[in-house]
Amino acid sequence: MSAAISPFSAEAFRLRAQGQTKTGESEAEYGDYRFNPGHPRPRVKQEFLRSAAVLIPVVDHGEEATVLLTKRAETLRNHTGQVAFPGGRIDPTDPTPEYAALRETEEEIGLPEGHIEVIGRMPDYVSGSGYRIAPVLSVVKPGFHLMLNPDEVDAAFEVPLRFLMDPANHHRNSRMWGELEWMFYEMPYQDRYIWGVTAGIIRILYERLYA
């Protein structure tokens, strides 16, 4: 990578994403159980995992790119009010996870496909709640105007890529699952609390591209 390129620019992110190498690990090794080795919490069998896709939208602001995140609506049944990447379930009619991520992103926050350049994918992230999530990597051209779907999203905001890729901002925390401790990452930013699956995906992104 050229020394002239800022490591936290969208161009550097693109180069790192395209330079990913396969590790040979199974998809089940990427996800919540990666941070909880040996935990007895029952795993959902692979054939029963629900398929989903999220977009990791890195917004090109020159030398200092940002990541576009959402706050889920307080009226939703699952993961109410949590910070998340735009995305959702993969429908049977979606030809690819990339298609599903783009479709869900436009449905949730009105970010048009014309502003999004898909540059790759990370290995699927398996959540403890039974989802197999395909994280789709992208670079987003600025100048977009978002139209939030109030049934799904309360807010959209940007966090500096530099902040999210700094391991000093990756804190370990835990909650009790029954009588057992369940570990997760959290990355508080200003008045936003990034944690759980979203923080886990960010942590894997850091490990694969920036560590």
Rank of each mutant, 00 (worst) to 15 (best):
A4H: 13
A4C: 10
A4K: 13
A4M: 13
I5Q: 12
S6D: 11
E11D: 13
R14Y: 06
L15S: 12
A17F: 02
Q18R: 15
G19F: 02
T21A: 07
K22T: 02
K22Y: 01
G24L: 07
G24Y: 04
G24H: 03
G24V: 07
E25P: 00
S26W: 02
A28I: 06
A28Q: 11
G31N: 08
G31M: 08
D32Y: 03
Y33E: 10
H39R: 10
P40W: 12
R41G: 04
R41K: 15
R41H: 14
R43H: 07
V44M: 09
Q46S: 14
Q46I: 07
E47Y: 00
F48L: 14
R50E: 15
S51G: 05
A52Q: 11
A53Y: 03
V54I: 13
I56E: 10
I56M: 14
P57W: 05
P57G: 03
V58P: 11
V59A: 06
V59S: 09
D60P: 08
H61D: 11
H61S: 11
G62S: 09
E64A: 14
E64Y: 10
T66V: 02
T66C: 07
L68P: 04
L69D: 06
T70M: 14
A73M: 05
A73C: 08
E74C: 02
E74L: 13
E74W: 02
E74A: 15
R77Y: 14
Q82D: 07
F85A: 06
P86K: 07
G87H: 03
R89L: 15
I90T: 08
D91K: 13
T93C: 10
T96V: 08
T96K: 05
P97L: 07
P97E: 08
Y99R: 13
A100Q: 09
L102F: 11
L102D: 08
E104I: 02
T105Y: 01
E107N: 15
E107M: 13
I109R: 03
I109V: 11
I109E: 05
G110S: 01
G110V: 03
H115V: 11
I116S: 10
I116M: 08
V118P: 00
I119P: 10
I119Q: 10
R121Y: 04
P123A: 04
V126K: 00
V126C: 03
S127W: 09
S129V: 08
Y131N: 15
L137I: 09
S138L: 05
V139W: 05
V139G: 09
P142H: 03
H145D: 14
L146I: 00
M147F: 05
M147Y: 03
N149Q: 04
P150K: 09
P150N: 09
D154P: 00
D154Y: 00
A155P: 00
A156R: 07
F157P: 02
P160M: 09
L161C: 11
F163N: 05
L164C: 06
M165F: 06
D166W: 06
P167T: 03
N169F: 01
H171L: 15
R172I: 07
R172A: 13
S174D: 10
S174C: 09
M176I: 05
M176G: 00
E181F: 08
E181K: 14
M187S: 05
P188S: 05
D191N: 15
D191C: 02
R192S: 07
Y193Q: 12
I194R: 09
I194F: 06
V197P: 02
V197N: 15
V197T: 15
T198V: 05
A199G: 09
G200E: 10
G200N: 07
I201P: 06
I201C: 04
R208I: 11
